[in-house]
Design a protein around this nucleic acid. Structure first.
Length: 179
DNA sequence: ACTCTGATGTACT
DNA sequence: GTACATCAGAGTA
């Protein structure tokens, strides 16, 4: 897996990959690309304390807190580029994820839920991806759907949200579109 | 199904 | 002071 490339290339490549975090794993079903020329990207204003990891080595995590209570996990791509992991299909460690999320609740249908299910916090900011505890394993290239982004106010309509076609483990449905 | 709102911390102007 | 790459619960239907 080549991490050091534009987020717009890495984001679709991560769909279908398996993310493993300390005994829990899942199939990535939804990502979003953020680039330095994107007004909605944390890297848009240039390096700051919060976004330092986005300008660090590719293949590391960029984790930040949002709305005071949730964490969001990104994979750092080229400098100033990152891919937000928005949703996944749980594969293993489901008991632990359920315990952290609460019984009957969706486990990882959104970036905040995903971080909570996998117990990802600011402690993981800057951590390199690699086996065995924090791994990102490429899968076979699946059919993708592409659509506008979610939860942002600037450039929300840029088609930079990628999903696994037909998956039920998405934060929201995609408007009809595919590659 | 949908829309609205409160919770909660911090980075940045 | 304001905005924020969100979620859960309550309300309406």
């Amino acid at each position: 897996m080549i991490f050091n490339r534009p987020a717009t290339d890495l984001a679709p490549a991560l769909i279908g990959a398996t993310l493993t975090v300390r005994g829990c794993s899942g199939l990535i079903t939804e990502t979003e690309a953020y680039t330095p020329d994107d007004p909605a990207s944390h890297s848009f204003p240039g390096p700051t304390r919060r976004n330092a990891a986005m300008f660090g080595p590719a293949g590391h995590a960029y984790v930040y807190r949002i709305y005071g209570m949730h964490w969001c996990l990104n994979v750092v791509a080229a400098p100033g580029h990152a891919v937000l992991i928005r949703a996944l299909e749980p594969l293993s460690g489901i008991d632990a994820m359920t315990a952290r999320r609460g019984r009957g609740k969706p486990l990882a249908k959104g970036p905040g839920m995903l971080a909570q299910a996998l117990d990802i916090t600011g402690m993981d900011n800057g951590r390199p991806f690699g086996p065995p505890d924090f791994a990102l394993k490429p899968g076979t290239t699946p059919d993708l759907v592409i659509g506008p982004r979610i939860g942002i106010t600037k450039a929300a309509d840029w088609p930079r949200r990628f999903g696994l076609k037909g998956s039920r483990h998405l934060s929201r449905p995609f408007p009809f579109s595919s590659v």
